[in-house]
Amino acid sequence: MDLALLEALNTERAARRAAIVVTELGSGRQRLVTPAQVPADPLAGQLAEALRTGRSAMVEHGNERMFLSVQVPAPRLVITGAVHISQALAPMAAMTGLDVVIVDPRSAFATPERFPAVDLRAQWPDEALPSLALDAFTAFAALTHDPKIDDPALEEALRRGCFYVGALGSRKTHAARLERLAGRGLGTEMLARIHAPIGLDIGAATPAEIAVAILAQVVGTLRQRPAARERAA
């Protein structure tokens, strides 16, 4: 890999943006393709599928064999609310390969004793989220039931293009939430991206069952999303 290509790849990695290194096996030539460049690329279909799955692959184009080396940021789950559901959800999510961050300014809840080995931020969302730089490889779950905590975090997650955004609460609670978020300038199409009530409808009743429903929905969204939604420009 030549120095210019390596520097370009490292730039994309540092910014948590996906990229693919295409290597022509016959000539050894390499090029870097970003998600925004995929539609115009001769390998558009194969590149889109590689981005969707996050898996490197050998492909053919004409008489040429090429290797697609997929470089995608590690997916992560950011949660507002150091609550009982989060206590079950955090270790489950970690076992599936998600990096987990929990944000909650309520220091009585956000304690290392309740959340061992978890990246815990005992801060308000407007303090914690800028440094986390939410992106298209981040899932976000609002679990506090407190609009002062959840609403600004939901706005940030939607504006940053998180691949999954979910919020705890009944349909009535969510209707009121949508009114508040609309008042913050969020449009109908953006608000429609919120999964609420959060999680798959499996009749979950306990915190652990709700955590299972949330994680299943997050994983399903991550693995089934169209490649176009993976553009983290």
Rank of each mutant, 00 (worst) to 15 (best):
R17L: 01
T23G: 00
R229L: 15
T173I: 02
A211S: 13
E209A: 10
D41V: 02
A142Q: 05
R223N: 08
A157C: 03
L51D: 14
T221M: 15
K172T: 14
D104Q: 08
Q217T: 09
A50M: 07
G45E: 14
N63H: 10
T173L: 02
I79T: 03
L129I: 03
T80C: 12
L129H: 06
E209L: 05
E179L: 14
D2K: 13
K172H: 14
A108S: 03
Q123C: 05
Y164A: 06
V72S: 13
Q37G: 10
P152W: 12
E12C: 06
M1C: 11
K148V: 04
P116M: 11
G45N: 08
G169I: 02
E7D: 12
I102H: 04
D146G: 05
E230Y: 13
T138E: 09
L129C: 00
I202A: 09
F115C: 05
L51R: 15
L134S: 06
V212G: 01
L120K: 09
A139G: 04
E64G: 06
T206F: 11
V33C: 06
T173S: 12
D150F: 05
E179H: 13
L51N: 15
D151L: 00
L5F: 02
E113G: 09
F115N: 03
F140S: 08
F140D: 05
V83I: 05
A228L: 07
P152A: 04
A36E: 08
L143C: 05
A167W: 02
A93N: 07
P147R: 03
G62S: 07
Y164H: 01
L6A: 14
A139F: 03
R223E: 12
D119K: 15
A133M: 13
G199M: 07
D151A: 00
